[in-house]
Each structure stands twice: as structure tokens, then as C-alpha cells.
């Protein structure tokens, strides 16, 4: 048992070290921070509060997060595979599951740091720049608070990590780096676009009933993310509105995508190197 733990951490640390020595990731981090700050300042949400900033960032993030997940994750396993290192690792009796989870954990930390830095920078920008428009009248913040933005950060990271797992699955299934990126992009697009399309189609054709809509929304990762953000962040300040999406089902759905992808990756890897 302890071998598994130490093996896991050895692989995990190696992933982290690799990431820290990859210059491109630093560039990406700067880019993400810059992009998020620009979106925040440009949308005008910064000057007025946390929740308007969430509103402004939600849609761009639905596009940005998948792109980031692909960028961070597509080389995950396939680079080791191409190098022939997987066969070598097998001689050390590294189980496929430990390998997959360790790689995932390492990449997850990287993705979380990059995305988290951007979002924290945004939080700071809002907290410093938002203020009342005039000082003539008394003001208060309403229900706007950094707590709501913190929820948004958590949900965004959960979404990102689910997508990362999907990308990792594609990476394992690929035979080469080129295939890996193609598969990753294809899978993400499918999941992101087809999910929404399927829901719309289902509503139109009738095989998704209104009552099931909340659950259906939780199935596709991006609509699960969107629905959860609306329900737990944006709708809090709106007049007693709810029903945007069931947050618990949404988060459970995202976790399901993550676990399912990782388990599938393990199985594929196991069959591959035997």
C-alpha cells in the first residue's frame, strides 16, 4: 500500500517539476491573467462589483477553459508513450491506475494554478476598483460579495478539472502527439457543443421533459457549469429567482465526467501496455 502511495507521489512530483520547467506555461499564465483582467475591465463589471464581473466572465470562460484544458493536458500521457517510457515504467510495477491519477493530479495542479491566478487577479482588481459611483449618497454593496466570487472560482476549477480528465482520456487513447491533440480538440468540442445541441434538440423533439431539464443540463459539462454558476452566484442577488440549474446535480455531473474519464483512461492504458 505504501509503495502505491510513494509511487503516486514520485510520479506526481515529477509532473509538477516538469510543469515548472516548461517556460510556455509561464507565458500561458501571464496570458490568462491578462485576458481575464482585460475582460473584467472592459466589461465595466470591475467598477461595480463581483457579481457583474462573474456575469461578464462566464461566457468567455466557457470558451477559454476548454482551450486551457487542452493546452495543459493533451501531451499528458502520449509524450511518455512516444518516448517508450511507459514500457520502462512498467518494469517498476507501476499500476496503470496510479500512473493515470498521478499524471492527472499533476496537470490538475498546473491548470488550477494558471486558472486560479487569473481569477484571483480578477478578484483583486474588483476589490480595489469597485466602489460607489458617487459619494453624495450612502452606499452599500447589496448582496455582492467576494464570497460569491469565490464560489465562481471553485465552480470554474471543477469545470476545468472535468475537462482536463476528458482531455487526458483522449491523450491516452492517442498513438501520437498529433492524434492526441486532434482527439482532445474533437472531444471537447463534441462535449461542449453537442451537449447544448442535444438539450435543445431534446426539448424540441420532446424527449427531454421540462421537469428533466435541470438534470439534462447537468449532463453536459459546460451547461452544468453555467447552470451552477447562475444558481449559486448570480441568482443570489436577483429577486428570489431560482431554477437555473440544480447545483448539486451539476457538480455531481462534473465529478462523474472526471471519474469516468480517469477510469476509462486507466483501462485503456492497461490494455495498451500489456
Amino acid at each position: 500500500m505504501s509503495t502505491i502511495v510513494s509511487t503516486f507521489f514520485a510520479l506526481f512530483k515529477r509532473e509538477l517539476k516538469t510543469a515548472m520547467r516548461t517556460r510556455v506555461y509561464y507565458l500561458i499564465t501571464v496570458g490568462v491573467i491578462g485576458l481575464l483582467l482585460a475582460l473584467t475591465a472592459g466589461g465595466g463589471g470591475a467598477a461595480t462589483g463581483y457579481v457583474p464581473t462573474v456575469v461578464d466572465l462566464l461566457l468567455p470562460l466557457e470558451v477559454l477553459v476548454p482551450v486551457l484544458a487542452i493546452a495543459i493536458g493533451y501531451r499528458s500521457v502520449v509524450s511518455d508513450l512516444e518516448r517508450g517510457e511507459l514500457a520502462v515504467l512498467k518494469t517498476y510495477d507501476v499500476p496503470s491506475s496510479v500512473y493515470v491519477f498521478a499524471i492527472y493530479a499533476g496537470r490538475a495542479v498546473v491548470l488550477s494554478v494558471i486558472l486560479g491566478s487569473g481569477l484571483l487577479a480578477t478578484l483583486l482588481l474588483v476589490s480595489f476598483s469597485s466602489g460607489p459611483d458617487t459619494s453624495i449618497f450612502a452606499t452599500h454593496t447589496g448582496l455582492d460579495s467576494p464570497l460569491l466570487f469565490a464560489r465562481f472560482i471553485v465552480l470554474t476549477l471543477v469545470f476545468a478539472l472535468a475537462l482536463l480528465a476528458i482531455v487526458l482520456l483522449m491523450s491516452v487513447a492517442a498513438q501520437s502527439t498529433l492524434t492526441a491533440i486532434a482527439l482532445a480538440v474533437g472531444a471537447v468540442v463534441l462535449v461542449v457543443v453537442a451537449g447544448d445541441a442535444a438539450i435543445i434538440l431534446g426539448l424540441t423533439d420532446g424527449w427531454i421533459a421540462e421537469a428533466d431539464l435541470l438534470n439534462a443540463l447537468a449532463i453536459a459539462p459546460n451547461s452544468a457549469y453555467r447552470g451552477a454558476v447562475f444558481e449559486t452566484v448570480i441568482a443570489v442577488t436577483a429577486a428570489s429567482e431560482s431554477g437555473y440549474g440544480s447545483p448539486i446535480t451539476s457538480v455531481a455531473g462534473l465529478f462523474a465526467w472526471t471519474i469516468f474519464s480517469l477510469i476509462s483512461a486507466t483501462l485503456i492504458l492497461h490494455r495498451r501496455t500489456v
Binding site: 466589461g43 465595466g44 461595480t48 462589483g49 456575469v55 461578464d56 468567455p60 447589496g142 436577483a238
Partner: peptide, 20 residues
Amino acid sequence: PVTVGLRALQGSTPGLRSGS
């Protein structure tokens, strides 16, 4: 697409926004 996407959401939380 970015403009189109953004404005779809811009109507929400009007009371917290500024100047438009």
C-alpha cells in the same frame, strides 16, 4: 461572437452596473 455572447448576459444584475 464575443460581442454577441457578452450582450446576452449584460442585461442581468442591472442595478450593480454603471453608466449604460
